[in-house]
Structure formats: C-alpha cells, structure tokens
C-alpha cells in the first residue's frame, strides 16, 4: 500500500515536470506579445525601442529552455515568479484565491455525490416508477445543458425572480449554493446514471440471485450486494468528473464573480501574462495528479482484487 503510494508520487513528480514543460512551451509560443501590451499601458505611443527595453527587463529575449529552467528553479523553491501585468508576487495572490476554487469544486463534488446516490438508488429500487423516470429526465437535462446556461438559468430563476439566493459574494453558505449547483449539475447527472446503470447490472448477475435465495429483501441486496460492486466504477467516474469541474470553474467563477484560481487563470490568458498562466497550470496539474492518486487508492480499497495486489 505505502510502496504503491510512494511509487505513484515519484512517477507523479516526473509527470508534473513534463506537463509544466509542455504548458510552458505552448503558452510561450502562443501568438501575441506581452511586451507590446505593457508598453502600450505605459506610453500610448510606444516605440520599438520601448518594447525591446521591456523585453530585456522581463528576460523575454532568452531562449525557451533557459526561461523554463529559470522558472523551474524558482518554482521548486516556492517562488512562482512575478506577474508581468501587476508586478506583484504570484505566490501570495494564488494562495489567497486557492480556498475559493477549492470550496467551489469540493462543494460541487459533494452536491454531485449526494444527488447521484439519492437519485440513482431510488431509480434502481423502483425501476420504471416515478423516481426512475424523474432521475432519467433530470440526468438527461443535466447532461445536455452547458454550465454557463444552467448558471444563467439559476441566477434568473432563483436569484432575480424569486430573490431566494444571492448571485455573488462569498458571505456564508447561501452565496455558495448557486455556484455549487451550477458546477455540480453535469457531474451529478452523469454520476446518477453511473449509479443507476451499475446497480441494475449488478442486480442481474448470478450473485444477486444467490442473495435472493438467502431470503434478503431487494433493498438489502441493493445496499449490501450491489453497491460494493459498483464502488470502483463510481470512484473512477467521480474522479474524472471532479477533474472536469476544474475546467468548469473557468466558466463558473466569472459567472458568479468568484475570485478563484480559474478566474486568475482566465485573466492571465487574456493578458498573455504567462507567468500567471504557468502558475495556475501548475496548481491545476498538481490537483489532477493528487486526484488520480486518490482515485487509485479509493479503487484499491473497494476492489478486493486490486487490494491484494497493492499490499
């Protein structure tokens, strides 16, 4: 178990380096020049000499490899560099935004889990009945609507028309409800299908008939016999969906005026502030690496075959 985790972590570090190198190269080779933008900010009529001066200041004349290794040395020492746009240290800005994105994604994932278990289980317990049909309808709607549309719909309905919930701000739980639903609805829809279909498949396998022959009720068979069998699949899907939620945050954070990492990332991209972009990507990639590790550990705990291999 521990050896597997440590082996995974070691592989993850290599993965992290390669991923950041790839991102760095892509961001740097994207069209647009930050020096031009900064020069225009400073003097409306900037000359080539001004721009060149700024390029030298920022070290933009160096080759990519030099710039990457320079960035990497800093990052390994906890120094993520300075924003080209604001001239501020990126580290503190990032750490003040991290809790907001973390709250958004964790809340969305929790919502998706609760929603998917309640609906998926109800559908499997009463197949073909109201709960099942409702689940399928909600799941279809949830899976078909993009999050910016869901968000706009929720803001219009619950906040503007009914005035039940605030549309932005971060005062207390109520301001989080709309963002959580917006970011969590698609994963909730997908996961509730995973639960519903997984339970149905498990109930058609021979061991479910053994459980019937034991005299257990359908509900007990679902909970004790079918559920443990879908756990690995569910954890896998939950991992993938949580990962997708980070992408969703890029849409949801601006929509609800949340100043999170995804919002910072977006402004970085728009201003070609690739030091900011690179720092945000580092956060995202680290998140994915940790997420994958958690999924692997979770699957090991729920799949007896994998568990014996891991120990």
């Amino acid at each position: 178990m521990l050896t597997l985790v440590s082996r995974r972590l070691r592989n993850s570090l290599v993965l992290l380096m390669l991923a950041t190198l790839l991102c760095f190269t892509l961001v740097v080779s994207a069209p647009g020049n930050i020096a031009v933008l900064i020069a225009e900010l400073r003097t409306p009529k900037a000359t080539f000499a001004d721009i060149h001066k700024i390029e030298l200041e920022l070290g933009l004349d160096q080759p990519i490899v030099t710039r990457y290794s320079h960035w990497l040395t800093g990052a390994l020492q906890g120094n993520l560099g300075i924003s080209y746009k604001t001239g501020e240290d990126i580290g503190p800005a990032l750490s003040s935004r991290l809790p907001i994105t973390a709250t958004l994604v964790a809340g969305g994932a929790t919502f998706a889990m609760l929603f998917s278990f309640v609906l998926g289980f109800a559908g499997a317990l009463w197949p073909g009945r109201f709960a099942d049909v409702a689940t399928r309808t909600i799941a279809l709607l949830g899976a078909s609507m993009p999050s910016f549309f869901v968000g706009a719909l929720l803001i219009y309905g619950l906040a503007v028309q009914l005035r039940l919930l605030p549309t932005f701000g971060s005062e207390g739980l109520s301001s989080w409800i709309l963002p959580w639903i917006t970011i969590g609805l698609l994963p909730a829809a997908v996961l509730s299908r995973v639960v519903r279909v997984g339970l149905e498949e498990a109930m058609s396998r021979p061991f479910a008939l053994t459980a019937v022959a034991k005299g257990l009720t359908r509900r007990t068979i679902l909970v004790r016999h079918a559920l443990p069998n879908i756990a690995p699949t569910y954890i896998n899907a939950l991992g993938a969906q949580t990962g997708a939620m980070v992408v969703g945050a890029v849409v949801v954070e601006p929509l609800f005026a949340l100043k999170g990492v995804a919002d910072l990332f977006l402004s970085g991209v728009l201003f070609r502030d690739f030091m900011v972009v690179q720092a945000c990507l580092l956060v995202f990639i680290s998140f994915f690496v940790v997420l994958n590790l958690l999924v692997d550990i979770g699957m090991m705990f729920t799949d007896p075959k994998l568990r014996r291999q891991g120990s």
Partner: peptide, 14 residues
C-alpha cells in the same frame, strides 16, 4: 439453494 456455477454465484466484493 445451491447453484450450478460457484464461480459467479458468490459476490466478488464481499
């Protein structure tokens, strides 16, 4: 009750 195929009649996750 005993079933024909003991390979699939037991729950693999318990």
């Amino acid at each position: 009750t005993i079933f024909q195929d003991p390979m699939s009649a037991l729950n693999p996750a318990r």
